[in-house]
Computed example of a mutant assay.
Amino acid sequence: MKKKFKVKEVSARLIQYPWDLIHINKEQLTTDITSYIENKPIKENKHIGVHFIKGSQIITGKNSIIKPGCVLDAENGPIFIGNEVKISSNSVIEGPAFIDDNVTIHALSRIHAGSNIGKVCKIGGEITNTIIQDYTNKQHDGFLGDSYIGSWVNLGAGTVNSNLTNIYGSVKLQLYDKIIDSGQTFLGMIMGDHTKTAINTKFTTGSIIGFACNILLTSTPPKFIPSFSWYSDNLTRAYDIKRELQVAKRMMARRNKKMTRNGEKVFKTIFTLTEKERKLHDN
């Protein structure tokens, strides 16, 4: 017997590229956090020496510490702070913003509207309208704007990106062997999981950096860097997958995490699938 299903039409956005997520990030954060607030009573925030602007739109989780001198400003959008979060003194967070559990935000950080920070991240410097996935470190000074950063990424001190061209035009990106017009005026970079950068790395507007790259350039990196690429001033080559797996496992162990067999398969599969990208880029 055939089952009958009811079909309901809904309105939804089609996400075609990662930068589409960046484009709708502020709006989606506002919708999601506001919906949460409407369905859950908000307790009064009690943190000595902390300034809450429009406190009814600010959620703070269990055992989170917000040090004196911090400003949480929800005037232009709600703010969600998860559990076990530590926000050091004299930091500013502007809504809409989402900070997940066990995040550490260092002193004097500026977290602007649209910041979406995953679990167990360490954050410092200036961030605006950027999605950062779990277990990523951006601990030091440096601007990160209108970007999407994967998990287990480590950005060296002073790493920055541009999110606006000098001609104020639509940002164009290189994706493999194609140039794509994003249709967006503000767009920083897309960076895959397990990528690392050296100190003072400078990315241009609309950069795409793949999975498990190691970027050690003193000059400006290319706008497109294929997955498993090793870039230094004297050498450009494919990153040895065995070596990168060892590095990834060491980094995960520092967070008491162990890479699974499926995790290793993901590494090896991505390495194989992106071989053509590396060859095209080298040519």
Rank of each mutant, 00 (worst) to 15 (best):
K2V: 13
K3M: 12
S11I: 10
R13S: 13
R13V: 06
L14N: 14
Y17C: 07
Y17K: 14
P18C: 06
D20Q: 10
L21R: 15
H23F: 07
K26V: 05
E27D: 15
L29R: 08
T31C: 12
D32A: 12
I33H: 06
S35E: 12
S35K: 10
Y36H: 13
I37W: 04
E38D: 14
E38N: 14
K40E: 12
E44Y: 12
K46H: 11
H47F: 11
H51G: 07
H51W: 00
I53S: 06
G55Q: 15
S56K: 15
T60W: 01
G61L: 06
K62T: 06
K62G: 03
S64I: 08
I65H: 11
I66V: 15
I66Y: 03
K67I: 01
G69Q: 08
G69V: 00
C70M: 01
A74S: 12
N76T: 11
P78K: 10
G82T: 07
V85C: 01
V85E: 09
I87C: 06
S89T: 14
S89M: 11
V92I: 11
I93G: 00
A97D: 03
D101G: 09
D101N: 15
V103T: 04
V103I: 05
A107D: 01
L108F: 10
L108E: 07
R110A: 06
I111H: 07
H112K: 14
G114S: 08
G114Y: 04
S115E: 05
C121V: 03
I123S: 02
E126R: 03
I127F: 11
I132K: 04
Y135M: 05
T136V: 01
Q139T: 12
G142M: 14
L144Y: 09
G145V: 12
G145R: 09
Y148P: 07
Y148K: 14
W152Y: 09
T159L: 09
S162Y: 10
L164G: 07
T165A: 04
T165M: 03
I167C: 00
Y168R: 11
L175Y: 14
Y176A: 10
D177I: 05
D177T: 15
I180C: 03
D181A: 07
D181I: 05
L187H: 01
L187M: 07
L187Q: 04
G188Q: 09
D193F: 04
H194I: 01
K196R: 12
N200M: 14
S207P: 02
C213Q: 00
L216D: 05
L216R: 02
L217P: 05
S219N: 15
T220A: 10
P221W: 02
P221R: 01
I225N: 08
P226G: 12
S227L: 02
S227C: 06
F228R: 10
F228S: 00
F228P: 02
L235E: 15
T236D: 03
T236R: 11
R237M: 11
R237P: 02
R237G: 04
A238Q: 12
Y239K: 00
D240K: 07
D240W: 06
I241L: 01
I241N: 04
E244W: 11
A248V: 00
A248E: 09
K249V: 07
R250H: 08
M251T: 13
A253Q: 15
R255Q: 13
M259W: 03
M259P: 10
T260A: 08
R261L: 12
R261M: 15
K265Y: 05
K268P: 02
I270A: 04
T272W: 03
L273F: 09
L273S: 14
L273W: 03
E275R: 13
L280K: 10
H281T: 13
N283Y: 11
